[in-house]
Amino acid sequence: MGYVMNSLLSQLLIIIEQGLLYLPLVLGGYLVISLMQIPDLSIESAVLIGAIAGNAGACVFSAAGLGLYVGIVVAGFAGAAVGVGAALLHVYGRLSHLLSSIIMLGFCQGLSLLFMGASHRPVVHEVIKLMLVPGYPVLPILVGCGFLVSLLMCYFLKTKLGLICAFYGDNPRFLVNHRISSAYVVCMGMGIANALAGITGFLLGQVNGFIDVGMSFGTPLVCITALVLGQLLTSVKKVLAVVVPLVGVFAYFASQTILLKSGIDLRFFQLMQAVFLVIVFLSRRSRYQHTLGV
């Protein structure tokens, strides 16, 4: 009995750890995909760029004891730069959101290889380990980081810029008719969302102990699946509801753990996600239109 309880507790802590790791990314996805209705693939490259830049910053400042803070800030700025770059391509290059984010994806992939010099690099300075919970050294920092980004997102959505970002997704003509600069709103929204993705990249690098150019593959799908799960489980009707990504990200990793424990081969997990999304969207299309991001 004790063994079963210990095993359950251990699985629960792993789900919480994984959920907190991806929470900034899913919050960013919630802002840009659900609220702004932008099919932003650049969050994938923001994760990778955030991992490289953040860990480089952490490496430089770890001797001064500032590695964690510098790492998070640098990863955030690097991710934001990716988002703003994609936004500028859309605004001034007059490219569609999808095309601009695909171009940014290719650009960042090349840039990552250039900076890393190889497709795989170990993280030299691990700055997020605190021995507060035995066996789970990264959990305290992830809890603090997740709590902070969730609070900041709640606050942001209460500001006028947050509201206008959501209005952009509801009705882009609103901004034109009220003479609000679409360029500013798109740049800010995509910048903030990708900054959060960059933070997840930094944390992923730290937790895994390495950075790989393929580490961010499929992250937009993780975002969308988590958001749909959150919407299904919470059934909230309000457009601005941070509870959706919060519930969604933990539900995503809980379902992943359940599938793993059921003996299902996780190599096919992305395929299962895609089938799940198709079923949900086709069966309840109008209801999940907001989560679709299209």
Binding site: L163, F174, H290
Partner: peptide
């Protein structure tokens, strides 16, 4: 084109 229909009256006025 001037209003966001998924939001409340209050939110529209705030925006």
């Amino acid at each position: 084109d001037m209003i966001a229909s998924h939001f409340s009256v209050r939110e529209n006025l705030a925006a």
